[in-house]
Design a protein around this nucleic acid. Structure first.
Lengths: 192, 192
DNA sequence: GGTGCAGTTCACGCGGTCTTGAACTATATG
DNA sequence: CATATAGTTCAAGACCGCGTGAACTGCACC
């Protein structure tokens, strides 16, 4: 399994073929670890795995390669790449003579996560607030709602506000904290 | 964390007339809102709903009442109460002459959430770290792994550390922040 | 126009999670 | 001890999201 029709000049230099369709064991482990983290954060596991592979390899890969290495379907890869690109975590690069797109990992995975979570959470909180407000309105309109019941509802709303604040603060600090190591992920010394 | 798109509680409450026991529309909305939050945090939606009803009502309810009001099954209520009680968010109280237990909401919902999340996250991070370490070990043992690949793997590990730190910090601050309003949930001041 | 390949879209099926409902245990009461 | 009611457990099934694979589009080159 050495010769590839589709990888002619570019890869020839790194002859040792580890990419015949299954990952090196250590890669598999690391990639799955990232997949788990990403899943924990509410994304798809395979989104994380795709990013991880691209990042670990360092060089842009084609959709076909991702498909083979990660054992995913064509359609699946397409959708995953779509999402990742829209979120700005991977970059589409046109390869010189090859007719296929290639994808490269951006280093700001975290910024994506925090950004998307921030948006998601914004809409989320928004809805909660709206619902609680509506509940309050209805309760008032009803008229016959005991005073302390209303009071508890109001307290609930303030609780929501506080939780919201805590969440926002977290995202902000996470951004800052992690932002500090963005440089660490970046290729500071491209000596290859 | 799968459903950050739920059908708005506003309509949900109006749809099905009142075949339920006697859950006021405004209660339904507020309760569902809490359920959504709780679900967002990785728990079961109905755990949040149960707590919310108990909290809003202010007085202890029996399992049967919960079953009726929230339209849940007997078995389901049993399991939900079990979890909630173990986490210390509700309290089992013996009622004077009635032969059934009653359950009352504790006010430290958040402490539970942060506590459980903390534990969950601790084990989670632990495993990620172990996985990455293992990947690194394997990669080293393999011998033929390019240096920059190894370097990226290491960077990944440090990223993980930073994320971990950010998470811990979040939980801590959330605890503190929310702790401040525990008093607000308690039965003293009607207004925030 | 035709062939081949890259990429996209989407209905379906699989797998995992939550809920149900019934069988079971526990406890009280006459 | 028989009966009733409260509470628990668990297999079966409802439910839902994800990935698959096939049909489709688009593009390039012959």
């Amino acid at each position: 399994m050495k010769g590839y029709l589709w990888t002619s000049g570019l890869e020839a230099a790194r002859g040792e073929g580890s990419s015949n369709g299954h990952l090196a064991p250590w890669e598999a482990i690391a990639i799955d670890a990232v997949g788990n983290v990403i899943e924990f954060w509410g994304f798809k596991r395979n989104q994380g795995r795709v990013w991880a592979l691209l990042y670990l390899r360092g060089e842009p890969l084609t959709a076909g390669e991702l498909e083979r290495e990660l054992e995913l379907s064509k359609g699946g890869v397409s959708m995953l790449l779509r999402d990742l690109e829209r979120w700005g975590v991977i970059r589409r690069v046109r390869s010189p003579q090859d007719s296929a797109w290639r994808y490269a990992a951006e280093t700001d995975l975290i910024r994506m996560v925090s950004h998307v979570i921030e948006e998601r959470e914004a809409g989320f909180i928004e809805r909660i607030r709206a619902d609680l407000a509506e509940a309050h309105r209805l309760a008032m309109a009803t008229g016959s709602v005991p005073r302390e019941h209303l009071a508890r509802l109001e307290k609930m709303a303030t609780l929501a506000e506080h939780v919201e604040r805590a969440l926002r603060l977290f995202i902000k600090t996470a951004r800052l904290d992690v932002g500090g190591i963005l440089g660490a992920l970046r290729e500071d010394s491209p000596r290859s």
